[in-house]
Design a binder for these strands. Structure first.
Lengths: 355, 355
DNA sequence: GAACAAAATGATAGCGTTACCAACAGCTCA
DNA sequence: TGAGCTGTTGGTAACGCTATCATTTTGTTC
């Protein structure tokens, strides 16, 4: 009896095996572990597959092998530029490989995250990338019980579930404030929105640096749970000014806010940096382009995503990374908006950088 | 013989059926079409499933039913704000439903798109969302042969593959230029980057409007294939100025470029809008916040994504939309950067809006 | 060249679900 | 009363692949 196609005319593994003159299971091995075949059969299966245009059926593979080739990614927001850079890194690293990315956004809610986690884990993903270190106890338990590699991204902290890549937002904020102090600023305001755990830790870093310098004042802090935006930066800054007209610098929890502050200064004809210095966080592209250019803390977001996905895939394939926790560091990028007393200093203050 | 669990301890449909006292196939029907069961059995299956914490095995379902519950989404870029808004709409619309989103980015390459399309179609997706109307002939053939609903997003044009949702970039650009003319501008420059098909059509709209007014001059156009950025806006504007110092307006193909132009004007102490009017495209959030505020053309990106996904899911479930092509229109948002002779006019010029 | 180990290959039996068709109950209508 | 519906339920056989273990082939050693 000749080869029999499936109804839909699709090529199955059996057809490839028949053309190659091997058993289906040998053909199957070719796609999973080519080295296990003799060179002769390897070539035969390869050309048979190409000739027939064989495409493996992932559903059948998943059912038979009891695992999927899906990497789940949980991020808080699809809109935030910060995450789109990370995402790009993740997609770039996974491209061309056997694993596909399944993306979901938690909308900055750890309960939503827990729900999605449950959903993901039910599908037995090959690996998982989750944002941050502030999961619910229930999520934490699920993650620890999951039998797949997991990478926590965006920040580092104690007790990683598995692997971890990011940097210390606390330290980065301290470095930012230290830079402003070095420029001669004393009354440094803080403007923050959304106040997710990482922004909160930046605030903590700011508070500790201010306390160290003996210049801490609760009234210098303006925050809101509202999602961040450029417009909001202006609004919050206006609030801050109304309360504390004599501030000499503003540390913004992100660059959008910083841009909003800059615009608000322009509207009010406040000279930047002469009257007020401005500092952002993340170093988005536009920070180097504004007038004046805006000082920020550079974070390696693309690299973070790319490395996270690479580490994860390696771990899935049984190649555990040497160090499970990777600190990608940060770097204060000094620009016009904060250069006061030392206008010619263009040196950068770096955080710890691993790798 | 009692119920026998699978090795992994997972609950299968068979266990649910046994507890409910029905056959597996009846239990299966409960999850796909509850109305087909009698009320008694429906209740029994439902509580059995809940009691056992049953989660369907998607791989088995896909294998048996010969189709997946995956919606493929092909977009050119993960970084571009424009697409992140669209994506958010798509995810919001699909959330909680049975379909999951599989995202890939084509990096603005129609060859990459063709490759990804082939990959996607091999998995028999439930539906497909693709960006734009400029596929390769091969892609077009594959799309037309695909036995799933398809939505083309971002723009509208003739010969939809299936469904289509977007707006006319050509008309939107013409409306933008018309607004500038109405403000008394004559020498309107064009600044564009990346030059993907939609930007190209905006350029075409600009050219046609300029020709209609008899003010067209090839030297007023500065474009590059480089990815867009704020910094690039400044650079391109500088090129334009060097060539045509006497322009009185700039129409930017997107808002990032417009912001870059604004900064460059500030650097050169060019008064906006008095010396040069600026107009962007997309109306990103910061446009309303800059100094001066920036005129732009608002496009309904979130709604586009949300509606596209909703239409697609409806079509998958057999509820075809009344109209296969949806024009979401656009709206010129007049702001300070372009208000010259009629500084108090805040009226908006709208494009055709369907739905 | 026999004995053994290692590498390569194959046969069989599922993986958990749904498609397909058959069977049956309850109802309407003549 | 029974033919003919309609609505509901179940039995059987895939879906296309891989895990497991058995078997064959090849290589190595003395």
């Amino acid at each position: 009896m000749g080869r029999k196609r499936t109804k839909s005319g699709k090529i199955r593994l059996a057809e490839v095996a028949e053309l190659a003159g091997v058993s289906p299971i040998t053909a199957s091995r070719f796609f999973r572990n080519p080295e296990a075949l003799s060179v002769a059969k390897r070539t035969r299966v390869e050309s048979a597959a190409r000739e027939l245009g064989y495409v493996p059926n992932l559903a059948a593979r998943a059912l038979a092998s009891q695992r999927t080739e899906v990497i789940g990614v949980l991020i808080p927001s699809l809109t935030n530029n910060v995450f789109s850079d990370v995402l790009r890194g993740i997609y770039d690293a996974s491209e061309g490989g056997r694993y596909s990315i399944q993306l979901s956004n938690t909308r900055y809610s750890i309960l939503q995250e827990e729900k999605l986690l449950r959903l993901f884990l039910a599908q037995k993903p090959a690996g998982l990338i989750v944002t941050g270190i502030d999961q619910t106890a229930e999520s934490r338990t699920m993650l620890e019980a999951a039998d797949c590699p997991i990478v926590q991204i965006m920040e580092i902290g104690p007790n990683p579930v598995d692997m971890m890549i990011g940097f210390s937002h606390y330290d980065a904020a301290r470095a930012a404030v230290a830079h402003l102090f070095a420029q001669g600023c004393r009354k440094v305001g803080f403007v923050g929105a959304r106040m997710d755990p990482r922004v909160q830790r930046r605030l903590d870093g700011y508070v500790s640096a201010m306390k160290d310098a003996g210049t801490f004042d609760q009234r210098l802090i303006v925050t809101t749970a509202t999602p961040t935006s450029v417009t909001l930066g202006g609004t919050l800054f206006a609030d801050l000014l109304a309360r504390q007209p004599d501030i000499d610098a503003v540390f913004c929890a992100n660059d959008d806010l910083a841009l909003g502050v800059l615009f608000e200064c322009r509207r009010r004809e406040i000279a930047v940096p002469d009257q007020i210095a401005i500092m952002g966080f993340n170093d988005l592209e536009f920070m180097a382009s504004s007038v004046p250019t805006l000082t920020s803390v550079r974070t390696n977001r693309y690299e973070m995503g790319k490395t996270a996905a690479t580490m994860l895939i390696d771990a899935i394939d049984g190649r555990r990374p040497e160090q499970a926790v990777l600190d990608l560091g940060y770097k204060v990028i000094e620009r016009q908006s904060s250069l006061l007393r030392r206008p010619n200093s263009q040196a950068a203050v770096s955080g710890m950088v691993a790798g």
